[in-house]
Write a protein that binds this DNA or RNA. Sequence first.
DNA 1: ACGAGAACATCGGCAATGCCGATCACCTTC
DNA 2: GAAGGTGATCGGCATTGCCGATGTTCTCGT
Lengths: 294, 294
Amino acid sequence: MAAVVDEGSFGRAAQRLGYTQSSVSQQIAALEKAVGGAVFDRPGGPKPVRITPLGKVVLTHGRDLLDRAQAMATALDRFRAGQGRVDIGTFQSLSNVILPPVVRGLRDEFPGCDIRLFEDETETPQVGQVDLMFFDRRIDGDVEHLKLLDDPYLLVAPRDDFPAGPVRLSRLHRKPMVAWPPTCDHPRVEQAFAREGAQPEIVFRAAANEAVLSMVKAGIGSAILPRLVLQGANVASDQALSIHELRPPLPPREIVLLWQAGRTHSPLAARAIEIAVDVAATYRPQDQTRQGRA
Amino acid sequence: MAAVVDEGSFGRAAQRLGYTQSSVSQQIAALEKAVGGAVFDRPGGPKPVRITPLGKVVLTHGRDLLDRAQAMATALDRFRAGQGRVDIGTFQSLSNVILPPVVRGLRDEFPGCDIRLFEDETETPQVGQVDLMFFDRRIDGDVEHLKLLDDPYLLVAPRDDFPAGPVRLSRLHRKPMVAWPPTCDHPRVEQAFAREGAQPEIVFRAAANEAVLSMVKAGIGSAILPRLVLQGANVASDQALSIHELRPPLPPREIVLLWQAGRTHSPLAARAIEIAVDVAATYRPQDQTRQGRA
DNA sequence: ACGAGAACATCGGCAATGCCGATCACCTTC
DNA sequence: GAAGGTGATCGGCATTGCCGATGTTCTCGT
């Protein structure tokens, strides 16, 4: 409004805006009523109108307001273009295997985006504080799940501890084992052992996968780990270790992507879900051999 | 709008604003149409609505906009309270005599105000660049004048150069004199001399009043100066100088306050005019004796 | 001095917007 | 399955915003 009248007269300003002169006059009158004083001096003749001191105050702040509105519009455009921010919760195993290609794919498509990762190792992660969260089991609450893949548990042992090929769970009874702490998915593993009447002897617990594998490699015992972990650590090519399927197979670890129920995703988050599904597909069991060597 | 819905639900927000629930719902719908996406997730039941990532963007900028609008409102209040800014043009003689009480009075009434003085010694001062301007003669152009007072010219001379009492202009013919440069009001003074057939000998010209008086005091010659200047310099009590009226009296210097024609004054500028008139009244000729000693 | 011209103000009318009240549709809970 | 609470939708009314035409006031030229 006032910003345009700097260009001369009410009529010319109106022309420039596509309004009529009367409309601009009414707008200015309304503005002057609102601020309680004249914002323009009208000399009366063909002289140009001039702004008053009060008008200068209004003009300065008005411009500022318009600038802010413009900034908001561009921020919305950036958001719609996906150049916003997405917060992703993750956990240790995923950070090394599935997450990197997801992040890479997202950054390729949205070069300006802001991806923030949160490794949340608490037992009850805060889904509400991130846009998406990877997790290794379903959780209760106001949460939507999207299952990415089943990650079967395998036995990794010092070479020659067991003959090549599948190993029966019952053979692990009273055998020394290295395991995750109970805060991870491991309780389900140990329940499966109990159902088979086998009770291995846990000689060490560590949350870090590297630590568990080092223990096994040192001959302290064997371990039950998901295939994804073994792939990430490149265990298959390690001459000191051997990998065995289990009989009967343990219920696999589920890799799920979850978010607050009913949440409307940003374009960035929506695309992240799609990419995660695609990436997870390349890790499905039938592709395991190819991917495991890649 | 959105700022209030943070407090729970559409209905409660409406209640808090004095609107109805339907109105808020329509407002949000319009907003979502404007930004091109949902700003709230509506779980459906008695659960509270939750803001979406897009909504966060809108909310942040919306709050900013409201803050700016508030800042504008307070700025307008400050302006109406007179705590704004006023630019005053002045010239040398005034800076010492009339201006100080004007500025002081203004600051007493509006402690927070911002008064800026501009000593503009150019021949054609820029009235458009200040709110008010003091000047020592009327000027042409798109300007309104307010005459504050007549400032009669007096002769100041080394003591004993002339006998006490009025001095005829013709007696100054070929007498050595110190004068202002022609850019000041002095041409009118010299025209008055010419009408009386007297032509003093200008031995020195200086714009600074102190310099002119020093010359006179040094006995170089006499000078024609307005009474205000002599009062400001406290010449009356100087034993080395004597002051004489002139016969016939010269047309006095006019002290005027002027501003761009048709200009709407800020409260500060309007009050400044009133104060200037009051102050000028204390300098009127009949008060001269009292004021001259003060 | 007086009329022409140019600028802003004002008035009547029309369409669009904003809000309300009532109702509908949906979900959760008992 | 009924009850209560939530947002969405619809019709109606008052207000606002804009236009076109006219009125008022000033400057300038004859």
